[in-house]
Amino acid sequence: MLDDRARMEAAKKEKVEQILAEFQLQEEDLKKVMRRMQKEMDRGLRLETHEEASVKMLPTYVRSTPEGSEVGDFLSLDLGGTNFRVMLVKVGEGEEGQWSVKTKHQMYSIPEDAMTGTAEMLFDYISECISDFLDKHQMKHKKLPLGFTFSFPVRHEDIDKGILLNWTKGFKASGAEGNNVVGLLRDAIKRRGDFEMDVVAMVNDTVATMISCYYEDHQCEVGMIVGTGCNACYMEEMQNVELVEGDEGRMCVNTEWGAFGDSGELDEFLLEYDRLVDESSANPGQQLYEKLIGGKYMGELVRLVLLRLVDENLLFHGEASEQLRTRGAFETRFVSQVESDTGDRKQIYNILSTLGLRPSTTDCDIVRRACESVSTRAAHMCSAGLAGVINRMRESRSEDVMRITVGVDGSVYKLHPSFKERFHASVRRLTPSCEITFIESEEGSGRGAALVSAVACKKACMLGQ
């Protein structure tokens, strides 16, 4: 009897593995994704193909990295998701002549009506938060230079001027797309009239992360975010950046690689679950690469896999709870928690219980395998993109072996128990001629924006502006 049951459990697990095998990517698959990513990057950089390229390769006008001589107080704003952060950054000489960066910050959550109302409502709310922060720190009387981390696709015309191309991540505030974001912020500050600010720089969160990590390690020339969304930036040779005049030196390019796949480059790798996630998203047909990796989508992918296993009578005796059938019910943090389970399955059992399920031991094991399959594919897909960037940098610099540091931020990278190990191992397999160091950014977005502002202020002083 026991043997029969054991055989049935083994057969069930084997069927589960057959279904989950769809998520496995072979090294040849990853090399294919990497080569296609490089081709799209090239198209994004070139003037004649930029418009139709899915990977936009947006110039950021960040050319210099901090040298350690900029000092002063800077205000930093960070808008990239449902939370908005205001930070005071003091850049100065530390002990023994070292450079020191001290920060104080406060988080504000953005109400739904500000995210989806008008641009005026959104930026009025942001300036209200700045006003509140300055009151708390008794700094209303000071006109501070301000660095703005704005983590949406922007076409820069200068370091302090950028046109919002399109909202992502659930934002829909009308009247912002096609307009200068810094102008919208300046107008809102003017409307309030109770404080003055000098907006000197606007950067993407990947750029802010790279600059913040450069402060720790001067070989950091790539910034990457794996959180709600997924994106990367890197220092490109100016001669390859056709959208900006000049051939000397390097400029940081914001790849906006989340949109890779929007022209069909990933079609052969998309599964039924991916198509369902895409169809029910706020932007169907867009940001397809990001939807395979980002935390906004990972939990939902797992939920759809679990429903398939229920329908195949391989999980929960073929019956799903009402909660499990509800879109968004299986949160991405559950994926991390399930994979963090120590082996007694308590954590998995508790999560499934909150979803109205009474799982068996085998159910718990199957749910864990589903989570591992989805998150491992995410790590491997992400590795193909980064390997594409790094191999490109090595080739354009004609280096036999390139040493490089990548600064990384984002909740999936930082909080998932195995993502970074799987990701690092896969990147290294795909970049055999590179020695890569990964560092995690601390308060990256805010500190990085302030350091970019410090560079901009120093330049302005040198130019006598």
Rank of each mutant, 00 (worst) to 15 (best):
R5C: 11
R7N: 15
M8L: 15
M8F: 12
E14K: 11
V16W: 15
L20W: 14
L20F: 14
A21E: 15
E22V: 10
F23Y: 07
Q26T: 14
M34E: 03
R36M: 06
M37A: 01
Q38L: 04
K39H: 02
K39G: 04
T49I: 03
E52S: 13
S54W: 04
S54Y: 05
S54K: 13
V55Q: 01
M57R: 00
Y61P: 01
Y61N: 04
G68V: 08
S69L: 05
S76V: 02
S76W: 04
D78C: 09
D78F: 12
G80S: 14
G80R: 12
G81D: 15
T82E: 07
V86A: 07
V89H: 01
V91E: 02
E93P: 09
G94A: 10
E95P: 08
W99F: 05
V101I: 10
V101Y: 04
V101N: 02
V101K: 02
K102T: 07
T103A: 13
I110D: 04
P111Q: 10
E112P: 08
E112H: 12
T116A: 13
T116C: 06
M121Q: 02
D124T: 07
S131A: 10
D135A: 05
K136W: 06
K140T: 06
H141Y: 07
K143W: 01
L144R: 05
L144Q: 11
P145H: 00
S151C: 13
P153I: 10
P153D: 14
R155C: 15
R155A: 14
E157C: 15
D158T: 15
I159A: 04
D160W: 02
K161V: 13
G162A: 08
T168Y: 15
G170N: 09
A173V: 04
A173Y: 03
S174V: 04
G178F: 15
N179G: 08
N180I: 10
L185M: 03
R186V: 07
R186E: 05
A188C: 04
A188I: 02
R191C: 03
D194A: 10
M197F: 04
D198P: 02
A201T: 02
N204R: 09
T209M: 01
S212M: 01
C213A: 01
Y214F: 05
H218T: 08
H218A: 03
Q219H: 06
C220F: 01
G223C: 04
I225H: 05
I225A: 01
G227V: 01
N231E: 12
N231G: 06
A232T: 06
Y234G: 00
E236G: 01
E236Y: 00
E236C: 00
E237A: 05
M238Y: 08
Q239R: 04
N240V: 09
N240E: 03
V241H: 01
V241R: 00
E245Q: 01
G246C: 12
D247M: 04
D247Y: 06
E248F: 06
G249N: 02
R250W: 11
N254I: 01
W257P: 03
A259S: 10
F260I: 04
G261H: 02
D262N: 13
S263N: 10
S263H: 10
G264V: 07
E268G: 04
E268Q: 02
F269M: 03
Y273K: 03
V277Q: 13
E279C: 15
N283V: 05
P284Q: 14
K291C: 10
L292R: 10
L292K: 07
I293T: 11
I293Y: 05
G294R: 06
G294M: 08
M298V: 08
E300C: 10
V302H: 01
R308V: 02
D311S: 10
D311G: 10
E312Y: 14
N313W: 12
L314D: 08
H317I: 14
G318H: 15
E319M: 11
A320C: 14
S321T: 12
S321L: 10
E322S: 13
Q323S: 12
Q323P: 07
L324Y: 04
R325M: 09
R325I: 12
R327F: 14
R327M: 07
G328N: 13
F330E: 00
T332C: 13
T332D: 10
T332W: 14
V335S: 04
V335L: 10
E339A: 03
S340Q: 03
D341L: 05
G343V: 03
D344M: 05
I348E: 06
Y349A: 04
I351W: 03
I351L: 04
I351A: 01
L352H: 02
L352V: 03
S353P: 01
T354A: 09
L355Y: 06
L355G: 02
L355R: 03
L357I: 04
T361A: 07
R369A: 10
A370S: 04
E372F: 08
E372S: 11
V374P: 01
T376D: 09
T376S: 08
A379L: 09
G385Y: 11
G385V: 13
A387R: 00
N391K: 13
N391I: 05
R392T: 10
M393T: 14
E395D: 12
E395G: 03
R403N: 12
R403Y: 08
G407V: 08
D409E: 08
Y413G: 07
K414S: 12
S418T: 13
F419D: 01
K420R: 06
K420F: 13
K420I: 06
H424F: 03
L430M: 06
T431A: 11
P432C: 12
E435H: 08
I439E: 09
S441I: 02
G444K: 13
S445D: 12
R447T: 15
G448K: 12
A449T: 14
V452D: 05
A454H: 14
A456K: 03
K458N: 13
C461G: 15
M462F: 13
L463Q: 07
L463G: 12
G464E: 13
G464I: 12
